[in-house]
């Protein structure tokens, strides 16, 4: 048996968050939270969910470079872009078609585009999570 492929599903958003977390309105934000919660439950129920969570704003990040003698700390995210990783899912899916269909559901739920990226698969992994 070969391992079930894993994918990282990422959602991006602006570095500085507004009160409604980048959503058009407070209502839209509440709706997206509810939709995402339901989607997470579905992932869990169908054995796709490995891990999912949302991140604090990128402005709260600290970048550490430990390659020198003393770790160098920089206030802020590593990438100098206007949008940063906001939330992500790690899922297991039989193939890319399944992952893309789930990503489309997730995108609808959280009101944003979702990037689907496969994990490097060299070591065989355990079987997918089943409730």
């Amino acid at each position: 048996m070969s391992a079930v492929p894993r994918y990282l599903l990422s959602v991006y958003g602006p570095a500085e968050r507004t009160e409604s977390s980048g959503h058009a309105s407070r209502d839209a934000m509440v709706q997206a939270f509810a939709g995402t919660g339901a989607f997470n439950e579905r992932l869990q129920r169908d054995g796709h969910l490995v891990f999912a969570d949302g991140l604090a704003p990128a402005t709260t990040a600290t970048t550490v470079d430990g390659q020198g003698g003393k770790p160098a700390l920089t206030d802020g995210p590593y990438l100098a872009t206007t949008e940063h990783l906001d939330a992500f899912w790690v899922i297991e899916a039989a193939d890319l078609d399944v992952a893309l269909a789930l990503a489309a559901e997730g995108s609808r739920a959280c009101h944003g585009p979702v990037e689907v990226r496969p994990f490097r698969a060299e070591e065989p992994r355990r079987a997918p999570l089943r409730p």
Binding site: P5, Y7, A94, D95, L96, D97, A99, V116, P118, R120, A121
Partner: peptide
């Protein structure tokens, strides 16, 4: 290969 694009008729 990496993304497991299936070898299948939809």
């Amino acid at each position: 290969k990496a993304a497991h694009i299936p070898y299948r008729v939809p």
